[in-house]
């Protein structure tokens, strides 16, 4: 049983502390396991601090997302191989990610949130960020993909020609 008013203090990798409700942390497999491992009384308020390997700025974004998704059903439904669609991102999540687009380092922010979602084991956030990145690259030209993924072409002309030759099986 989760007590929604219970609070958990999270200490970030850059030394900040954030106290949040258990209603939010229940979506993080990592934090829930840490609390279980502490074997503290569920009624203890506040619970002991849980150290997370995520910086303060990224954790704030994660908490913003968790706040919006606090009522999402748990456990997060397992995905089958057949579920490949990336066009079903909720409107709030789209706006949440769109907000980062105003930042210069939007791609870095996205990567930081993806890494945090993985470390904290928040499946819904990982799934949403994966779809976001997939939507960014699907249907784009090679140059556009390089721009989105912030890549420099490191192929030689000969290597590029070889890959184009391999791709030619599918480009007639």
């Amino acid at each position: 049983r989760i007590y929604p008013l219970m609070r958990v203090t999270l200490t970030t990798s850059d030394g900040a502390s954030v106290t949040v409700s258990r209603q939010l942390t229940k979506h993080s497999g990592f934090i829930e396991k840490a609390i279980t491992d502490m074997a503290v009384d569920d009624n203890a308020v506040p619970l002991s601090a849980v150290a997370v390997d995520v910086d303060d700025a990224t954790l704030k974004l994660v908490i913003e997302w968790l706040t919006e998704h606090r009522d999402d059903a748990l456990p997060y439904p397992e995905k089958t191989d057949e579920e490949r669609r990336a066009d079903d991102i909720p409107a709030w999540d789209q706006a949440f990610v769109q907000k980062w687009d105003t930042k210069e380092d939007q791609q870095q922010t996205l990567y930081a949130v993806i890494t945090a979602a993985d470390k904290l084991d928040i499946k819904g956030l990982l799934d949403m960020t994966c779809k976001t990145l997939a939507n960014k690259i699907n249907g784009k030209t090679v140059e556009e993909m390089r721009e989105i993924l912030q890549l420099e072409c490191d192929f030689t002309e000969e290597e590029l020609a070889e890959i184009r030759k391999e791709n030619a099986w599918c480009e007639n």
Binding site: N138, V142, M145, R146, L151, D154, L160
Partner: peptide, 16 residues
């Protein structure tokens, strides 16, 4: 998993 075949072809041309 979400990348179509034609996107795979373009993706592999982006970088090593």
């Amino acid at each position: 998993k979400t990348v179509e075949i034609k996107d795979r072809l373009r993706l592999r041309l982006t970088s090593r």
